[in-house]
């Protein structure tokens, strides 16, 4: 990445807050798995539902990370074929793909919210603890919406030419 001013403003704060929330959930998941292993040694019994809680926790964490990834533009792209072009053209291409990613993230946000509504309607729960899962799917949708906002932030910045 070029040296650029780090993102600021409400969208950046939202992305960072979601990432920290996701990271905290991931740490909590690690703590739970560790506690389950210790309990398995001490009492020969794991914490009930540890597998599904780890899946749930890491799923929520990954969703929370998405907006921050877009905000810091951490994606793998190949620039070897376009370095000979003027910087302006490269920036225009980046702006274009950021807009496309904005559209994709918005569609996925809407899809996950629909998915959450259907999961709620069908009453699906986890296997051991019987926890409902619709809310987690819905949070995933909101995380994709925040990702779309982060993409919008960058698209705007790149189009204005301050990338």
């Amino acid at each position: 990445m070029e040296e650029e001013i780090p993102p600021r403003g409400p969208v950046a704060r939202l992305g960072t807050a979601l990432a920290l929330a996701g990271g905290t959930v991931l740490l909590a998941t690690a703590l739970l798995a560790t506690a389950s292993v210790l309990r398995r040694w001490a009492t020969a019994q794991p914490i009930p539902g540890d597998f599904e809680l780890v899946s749930l926790g890491s799923g929520l964490a990954v969703m929370g990370f998405l907006a921050q990834g877009t905000l810091t533009r951490s994606n793998i792209l190949v620039d070897s074929f376009t370095t000979w072009l003027p910087a302006r053209v490269n920036r225009a291409m980046d702006a274009f793909w950021t807009l496309v990613w904005l559209g994709v993230a918005a569609v996925l946000a809407e899809r996950l919210l629909v998915g959450a509504r259907e999961t709620l309607a069908s009453g699906t729960t986890t296997m051991v603890l019987g926890l409902p899962t619709w809310w987690a799917v819905g949070l995933g949708g909101l995380c994709f919406a925040a990702t779309a906002l982060s993409a919008a932030y960058w698209a705007w910045r790149l189009v204005r030419g301050r990338g």
Partner: peptide, 11 residues
């Protein structure tokens, strides 16, 4: 599709 109804507990 072939599946187990039990794959979606509660449904």
């Amino acid at each position: 599709i072939w599946t187990l109804p039990g794959n979606t507990p509660g449904r």
